[in-house]
Amino acid sequence: MRRVEHVMGFPVSLRVDDELGQEVDGEGDFEATADAVFAWLREDDARFSPFKADSEVSRYDRGELERHELSADLTEILALCEHYRLATGGAFDVRLPGRRLDPCAVVKGWSVQRAAELLTSAGARSFCLNAGGDVVTSGGPWRVGVRHPEHADRLCTVLELTDGAVATSARYERGDHIIDGRTGRPATGLLSLTVVADSLTEADSVATAAFAMGTEGIDWAASLAGCEVFAVDADRRVLRTPGFPSVAKQPAAA
């Protein structure tokens, strides 16, 4: 089964390779589960987008909700944001001065990881869920390409995942949009940084947090248990941890 929908401002693709026709929660295939996956992602976009005036995040940011009135999900998301703010010495910060509260860097990975867990709970054993280039896989193995930071039609590496997640933070889609909270200026030390971890909640959060730190973020991310890193710095040097699961080791910049 394959499906693609536009959610949270980017394409989300789902591929399930389990045989259709097997019994799944009383259904003959995974279509109903796919419906639930995309409904969950749309719901999270409505609840947690800082760009929607009636979202829980926007209402909290305007002071219309007290901390004790927040949903358990948003409370968990904000706790993760605070964890990475402290872990990066303030480089990663979702409450930058003069800007609205923006937890999107954590929300995306957290939401997609939860969606993947819906698939697993429904009995899916071999699937790939790709949310704008950030990927959760089960079974496989699956090959995932990491886009070249300067050439949209090229890959800088290909990795192989069985059960895990991969996320990339970079400047190529939205320019210098990741801010170093310590300086208030765009983080420009890296062109891209990719993290492989057990969950997309961690991979996506760590990739953004490390990117905000600049080149020092590479060693910080690499020091985290269970995280493997592939990075291209502003001088176009390629740095990777020994355990990064590359299929082919290719130069990233030429």
Rank of each mutant, 00 (worst) to 15 (best):
L65Q: 10
P11K: 10
L159R: 01
S55V: 02
V37Y: 01
E56W: 02
E82N: 10
G89V: 13
G123L: 12
T201S: 14
D176N: 12
H151K: 15
S223E: 15
T194E: 01
T88L: 09
V144S: 08
T157F: 02
S192N: 06
A122R: 00
W220A: 04
R100P: 03
M1G: 04
G139F: 09
V158P: 00
V229K: 03
G189K: 04
L155H: 00
R114M: 08
T188Y: 01
E27H: 14
G26V: 13
D153M: 14
S192K: 01
A253C: 14
P50C: 02
V247M: 06
D233V: 03
G89A: 04
G140D: 11
S223H: 09
G132N: 10
L96I: 13
S126W: 11
A152N: 02
G175A: 13
Y60H: 15
V112I: 14
L193D: 03
R2I: 15
L239F: 03
T120C: 00
F10L: 11
G9K: 04
T201R: 15
E27C: 03
V238N: 01
P11T: 07
V7M: 04
G243F: 02
V229R: 01
A32M: 03
L161S: 06
L96R: 00
A253P: 05
A221M: 07
A170H: 04
R3E: 15
E76S: 14
D153E: 13
L129A: 12
E56Q: 05
V146Y: 05
A253R: 08
A79Y: 08
G139T: 07
H151A: 07
G123D: 13
S169A: 13
R171W: 09
V247L: 12
G175L: 12
L20S: 15
L78F: 14
C128Y: 05
V37R: 04
R15T: 13
E19F: 07
G181V: 09
R100W: 11
E56N: 07
S55G: 02
D204Y: 10
A167R: 13
A225S: 13
G28R: 00
C128P: 00
R95E: 14
E228M: 05
D25T: 01
T183V: 14
P245D: 11
R240F: 01
